[in-house]
Computed example of a mutant assay.
Amino acid sequence: MGHERQLVKDMMEPRHFRTLFISDVHLGSKAAKADFLLDFLRHHEADTIVLVGDIVDGWRLKRSWYWPQVCNDVVQKLLRKARKGTRVVYIPGNHDEFLRAFPGMHFGGIEVVERMMHDGADGRKYLILHGDEFDVVVRNARLLAYLGDWAYDTAIRINIILAAVRRRLGMPYWSFSAWAKLQVKHAVNFIGEFERVVAEEARKNGADGVICGHIHHAIIQDMDGIRYINTGDWVESCTAVAEHEDGTFELITWRALASSVTALAAIEREDAELAPQAA
């Protein structure tokens, strides 16, 4: 028990990285796991944090306003990190495209840029962009993109119902929305084509790799000499990408780690309850 407690406590100590990359939070959407992101930001520090688009979901906020306190908490946490010396860069995506009208502007210490080139600690150069400009649906058929967004919301609602039923039956978590999305993407070979085109854009810009978001499919892989990194999302996967001081990259899934943090809180509560009895 003591070893497990120490292991979990070690995991709770804030980890410091050279750079953190986060995208597709979709604040303003009921599907956003803003509480998970807030928890993640409490346990992770970095010299630079790059927000790789769709942090705020302007599309959904236009349809109906939804902005609980936890959304404010996430924004305030990022602003606080910026005030304390962390460089925070915001690259707008298609859902927060209203910010594309303010390239080069600073909001509370957060810098807005359309795209950027990141110099890795190992000397490699990475092109950073959201990636929606390479999504044919978003680029050429905005109406279809909105319809797809509505369909995804519907899938999320179905997912909540199914998850509740599966819990009652003692079955493990399974994401209908992620499965449905993956089936559609595979049907049109979307993910593979997106990755190929984005990697080629990095090559055209003389970069060794590319870091993007948009398709909610977290991965780190090499593609014909180009390192392709997708940060995933904070709707389902709750993933971020971290660069270590030596230039290596790590894909972090916070949903899995957060359970250990919860476990430690339970252990500490139990210790506190037992302490008076021991006295």
Results as ranks from 00 to 15, higher is better:
residue 190 F to S: 11
residue 92 P to C: 11
residue 85 G to T: 09
residue 234 W to H: 04
residue 34 A to C: 04
residue 57 D to R: 04
residue 237 S to G: 00
residue 195 E to S: 03
residue 226 I to L: 12
residue 161 I to D: 07
residue 113 V to T: 01
residue 2 G to V: 15
residue 37 L to K: 05
residue 120 G to H: 03
residue 95 H to M: 11
residue 133 E to L: 09
residue 189 N to H: 12
residue 154 T to Y: 08
residue 273 E to L: 15
residue 277 Q to G: 00
residue 258 A to M: 14
residue 27 L to P: 00
residue 144 L to Q: 09
residue 270 E to R: 13
residue 200 E to P: 00
residue 263 A to Y: 14
residue 241 V to S: 01
residue 12 M to C: 13
residue 229 I to L: 11
residue 148 G to R: 03
residue 230 N to E: 03
residue 222 D to L: 02
residue 175 S to E: 02
residue 204 K to F: 13
residue 59 W to H: 10
residue 240 A to L: 09
residue 21 F to V: 01
residue 108 G to F: 10
residue 262 T to P: 00
residue 4 E to V: 05
residue 233 D to E: 10
residue 244 H to Y: 12
residue 185 K to E: 08
residue 34 A to Y: 01
residue 83 R to C: 01
residue 248 T to A: 06
residue 251 L to K: 02
residue 168 R to V: 07
residue 124 R to W: 05
residue 192 G to N: 11
residue 21 F to S: 01
residue 192 G to M: 10
residue 17 F to I: 05
residue 206 G to K: 05
residue 243 E to L: 12
residue 124 R to C: 12
residue 240 A to K: 06
residue 106 H to G: 08
residue 256 A to W: 14
residue 179 W to Q: 10
residue 213 G to Y: 13
residue 26 H to Q: 08
residue 53 G to Q: 12
residue 41 L to T: 03
residue 264 L to G: 02
residue 200 E to R: 14
residue 119 D to W: 03
residue 75 V to L: 13
residue 41 L to M: 03
residue 161 I to Y: 13
residue 96 D to Y: 08
residue 106 H to M: 10
residue 180 A to Y: 15
residue 62 K to N: 06
residue 1 M to Q: 09
residue 278 A to F: 14
residue 72 N to T: 07
residue 174 W to A: 08
residue 153 D to E: 13
residue 29 S to F: 02
residue 142 R to T: 05
residue 134 F to P: 00
residue 254 W to K: 05
residue 167 R to D: 03
residue 217 H to F: 15
residue 131 G to F: 02
residue 36 F to H: 14
residue 46 A to V: 07
residue 158 I to E: 08
residue 274 L to C: 02
